[in-house]
């Protein structure tokens, strides 16, 4: 049985690697990972050259009929009259300079944080924040497409008459997608590593006050969490695609749930306090809790809907979702009669 699944997985890869969609998804993952690294790099460069920026108060801008703008602290604190913003009152400049002096106390720590964000191993975790969120969207598209094509073009009939067995075939598909997700993350992070070395070389030595807090163990843990967080989403999209026998439905529900789930949690949590308890058992929220480390950590607060559940609660809920959705999908796949093409 294991040999059969391994063989089917190999041939699933044979099919998938010939699809443009797989490579487009990978390119997106790499682009977004690069965006995270270089975004951090330019943020660091900006912080270093400006000493931080202060936004000119909106009320003041409105009074003066100007567009929103920022001023650099290095200019304000330089004492050089030529570098002061000529269009602002002296009193305003004094106020902004006071803010800059306050910020200056935290400047070394901010620089250190920014530096870690684009150099190894900290850049891995930085990139994963964006790549993980994107991976949920991409895996929904890829899963729905990989499973749905057998219904749409009617190839499920041709495959099953080869004597593959039903559940080994679906297992091989899910396994292939899970492996490809892991490989995709690794490839994206490999490019992050290369970019980090380049960015680090351009940036030069670490800021003097930098204390290295990011470790390779943290990076590994972030990678593990990112991969695990994709699995319930993979199960959800598989479930919808099998039930609806359609890749379009799989994609629509997979993507729709991701965005709509977050929106509804934010909306209902703000309207009804009791909804927070319901939200703690919803998929999207527990994915956030799992990847951000849950309550009690620095990242344990969601901008949409209050504090997140703890990591143990999150992983248990995610495991239940994964097992339940997969079990139903397998049961339906095993029991249902196979018809011709459904196209869609």
């Amino acid at each position: 049985m294991i040999a059969n699944i391994a063989n089917l997985t190999r041939w699933e890869w044979f099919k998938l690697r010939r699809r443009w969609m797989l490579w487009i998804v990978l390119v997106f993952a790499i682009l977004f990972a690069q965006l995270a690294v270089w975004g951090q790099f330019f943020s660091y460069e900006n912080l270093q050259s400006t000493g931080g920026e202060i936004t000119v108060p909106a009320t003041l801008q409105q009074q003066q009929g100007r567009l929103p703008r920022t001023v650099a602290c290095n200019d304000l604190l330089s004492g050089d009259q030529g570098r002061q913003p000529a269009d602002l009152d002296v009193q305003v400049i004094a106020g902004l300079a006071a803010q800059c002096r306050q910020q200056a106390a935290t400047q070394p720590a901010r620089l250190a944080r920014a530096y870690q964000g684009f150099t190894l191993p900290g850049s891995i975790s930085t990139a994963l924040v964006i790549v993980q969120a994107l991976a949920l969207i991409l895996i929904a598209i890829l899963t729905a497409s990989a499973i749905g094509i057998d219904y749409g073009s009617g190839t499920l009939r041709s495959v099953l008459t080869q004597g593959t067995g039903r559940w080994p075939y679906l297992t091989a598909k899910i396994l292939t997608l899970a492996i490809l997700t892991a490989l995709g993350l690794l490839v994206a992070l490999a490019t992050v590593a290369i970019s980090s070395v380049i960015a680090g070389a351009i940036a030069g030595a670490a800021p003097s006050a930098a204390t290295v807090t990011a470790t390779w163990a943290d990076a590994g843990l972030a990678l593990w969490k990112a991969w695990v967080s994709v699995l319930p989403y993979l199960a959800l999209t598989t479930f919808v695609t099998v039930v609806a026998r359609s890749s379009a439905a799989g994609m629509a529900i997979g993507l729709g749930y991701y965005f709509l789930g977050q929106l509804l949690i934010a909306l209902f949590s703000s309207l009804f306090s009791w909804f927070q308890n319901v939200a703690d058992f919803l998929l999207v929220r527990n994915i956030s809790a799992w990847t951000q480390g849950g309550a009690g950590t620095s990242g344990g607060f969601s901008s949409l809907g209050g504090s997140l559940p703890d990591a143990t609660h999150a992983i248990v809920v995610l495991a239940i979702y994964t097992v339940a959705l997969s079990t139903i999908a397998f049961w339906i796949f095993e029991r249902r009669d196979v018809q011709g093409a459904t196209v869609g």
Binding site: F14, K15, R19, S158, Q162
Partner: peptide
């Protein structure tokens, strides 16, 4: 019914492989 994005030969290779 075959995979539309694969060639005739690749389709046969695939079905030969899975079976």
């Amino acid at each position: 019914t075959f995979y539309p994005y694969l060639s005739g030969r690749a389709n046969l290779r695939y079905f030969q492989g899975v079976g």
